[in-house]
Structures are given as structure tokens and as C-alpha cells.
Design a protein around this nucleic acid. Structure first.
Length: 292
DNA sequence: AAGAAATGCAACCGCATAGTT
DNA sequence: AAACTATGCGGTTGCATTTCT
């Protein structure tokens, strides 16, 4: 298959976006909704490629983007999720409402990589190759093909760092997790832990387990039994629908009216920092169980 | 005060893959 | 089934800003 360039280079503007361009893009998306980025670029009269428009929207212009410093809770969560997921920034971002994958990726590459390097014997260094990976991140511009080997295999390479319980403790672990491993989720305790233990391609099962948190109502209600937040579609997730607009679940065909409702919800939720705090704590707690 | 070095972050690039024709 | 398109993702780069000497 011959690959065409992602966007026509001629006449396309590159570099920082101006306020005018931002305004045009915001107005267009507000009227027509997200998605169809090629037509956005074309119809809105922006001299930007579709990718550029999408990126600008997702990483900067979306109304529910949370700017400002990463909180302690968020930081802890990022570290834990990174241990579980590796460099799956979009997945990690999906668990941090209002944060973009780019934000988290940047934060990791700058702040956390450094921290983890200095705390070599602590939590974030369960990964044997952490030091090497950290220095890899820090060595800007020195990247070459061979350096990239580990970074190119996030799922397998990083999964190797997951603390793995001894075989005979598996069932205890499942029990400790408030029975959640016995949930009706398609991935039961056996599947999850065997995939963790195997360290082979079945890692994907383990990842889908995490992804299923979003959609498996039964699972999440077990995980957070006292959570009262329920999505419009009646399925609760960890952040109670905060991610309606977020990376993981975003869909080009999302109904814009729903979108706006979700946006309002989101803005309200962000004002309720305590409840967000509680949810973050809950997820951290869950991750603690996994650590044990 | 000025130049160098380090840092932070927005944006770009290429690849993968789901969806469509 | 194959070809093609659109979108999403992770890695990388460029540049503005900040800190250090």
C-alpha cells in the first residue's frame, strides 16, 4: 500500500497557533462538533492540516482541559498507572480527567523521569530498566535507532516492571480486591493474573481489563461501591463520566448536544475538587491493592 | 548584566489501525 | 478481499522561558 503524506504540505501553515486561528477552530467545532478533521481544516478556512487541527483542539482548545500544575494525587496516579500501562499515555490520560496524553507525557519526561531516577529504590522504580529508560528520556536529541528499542515496545518492556505476586498468592489478591476479580467482567482473576504472570502477548488482556473499567458497570460498581455518580448511559466509571469528552472514549460521531451536556457536567465536576480528590484516592487505593 | 545551559511545553512526524469504498 | 482514508497514538523536535555561572 502506498502511503500518502498525512496532509498536503504546500500552503499549510506550521508552528504555533495564533489567537485568530484558535478562535476559528473553536467556533467551527462548536457549530459542527468534533471529528471530520479534514473537513474542519478545509471548511473553516484554516491553513492547517487535519492532524494539526485535531491536536490543537485535543491538547489545548477543548473546554474541559485542565491546565496548571499536576497535583500530588495526580502525580502519584501517573506513576502507578505508568507502572501498569507503560508509555500508554492516552490510557493514562483517560484516568486523569482534564489531562491530555501530551501533558502527561511531557510531565513524565520532564518531572517524573527525573524524580524516579533519584528515587531509584522506591515505588516508581519497580521497573528493572527504569534508570536506563530515564536517562533515555533525558537525553534529548541523542535518540537513534538502537536507543529506541525499549521505547518502541512499551507494552512488553514496561510490563516487565509490574510487581508480580507469587503464584500461591493470586487468589488472596483477588479476594483482597473486594471481590472485584470475581466480577462478571469478561476478564476474570485467572485471566488477569495469568496474563500478568505470563508476560507474553496476553498483556493485552490485562490492559483491556483496565480499559474495561470504563464500560463494565458491574466492575466499577464493585470497585467503588459508594460511588453515586452515574453516566448518562447509566454505566458508571471511575470518574463518573468526567471522561465523556476525553481521549479514550472520544468519537467523531459523538452527538454534540450530549457533548455539551458532558462539558457542563465536567466543568461542574472540576469545581468539586474534593470529590475528584476522593475518586483519585480510590483509584490509588485500587492500585495499592495491585501493588500488594 | 550577559551568555550558556537547562527546562517545559506545544507542535510535528511517522506508524498503526479502524472504518469505508 | 483489497485499496484507500481518517483518526489516534507515541516518540521526537523546536523554541521560548527560566535558571545558573
Amino acid at each position: 500500500m502506498v502511503r500518502r503524506p498525512c496532509c498536503e504540505k504546500e500552503g499549510m501553515k506550521k508552528g504555533a497557533w495564533s489567537a485568530e486561528e484558535d478562535e476559528i477552530l473553536i467556533n467551527y467545532v462548536q457549530i459542527h462538533g468534533e471529528g471530520k478533521w479534514r473537513s474542519v481544516a478545509h471548511n473553516a478556512g484554516l491553513k492547517r492540516c487535519a492532524k494539526s487541527c485535531r491536536l490543537r483542539w485535543l491538547n489545548y482548545l477543548r473546554p474541559n482541559i485542565k491546565r496548571g500544575d499536576i497535583t500530588k494525587d495526580e502525580e502519584e496516579l501517573i506513576i502507578r498507572l505508568h507502572r501498569l500501562l507503560g508509555n500508554r499515555w492516552a490510557l493514562i490520560a483517560g484516568r486523569l480527567p482534564g489531562r491530555t496524553d501530551n501533558q502527561i507525557k511531557n510531565y513524565w519526561n520532564t518531572v517524573l523521569a527525573k524524580k524516579c531516577g533519584s528515587l531509584s529504590s522506591q515505588s516508581c522504580t519497580s521497573k528493572p530498566s527504569r534508570e536506563a529508560e530515564t536517562s533515555h528520556f533525558r537525553s534529548r536529541g541523542s535518540m537513534n535507532g538502537s536507543d529506541q528499542v525499549d521505547a518502541d515496545q512499551p507494552s512488553l518492556a514496561s510490563m516487565r516492571g509490574i510487581p508480580i505476586p507469587p503464584q500461591n498468592e493470586q487468589h488472596c489478591l483477588a479476594d483482597k480486591s473486594t471481590g472485584l476479580m470475581n466480577s462478571s467482567s469478561s476478564i476474570g482473576s485467572q485471566g488477569l493474573f495469568s496474563s500478568l504472570l505470563a508476560g507474553d502477548d496476553r498483556d493485552e488482556d490485562h490492559l483491556s481489563f483496565l480499559m474495561n473499567i470504563d464500560t463494565d458497570e458491574d466492575f466499577s460498581s464493585r470497585l467503588f461501591p459508594d460511588s453515586t455518580i452515574v453516566n448518562e448511559d447509566n454505566s458508571s466509571d471511575i470518574f463518573g463520566g468526567l471522561e465523556k469528552n476525553n481521549v479514550v472514549s472520544s468519537s467523531p460521531s459523538v452527538d454534540t448536544s450530549h457533548d455539551q451536556v458532558a462539558r457542563v457536567d465536567t466543568e461542574v465536576m472540576y469545581d468539586q475538587q474534593p470529590s475528584l480528590h476522593v475518586e483519585l484516592k480510590k483509584l490509588a487505593l485500587f492500585l495499592d491493592l495491585e501493588d500488594d
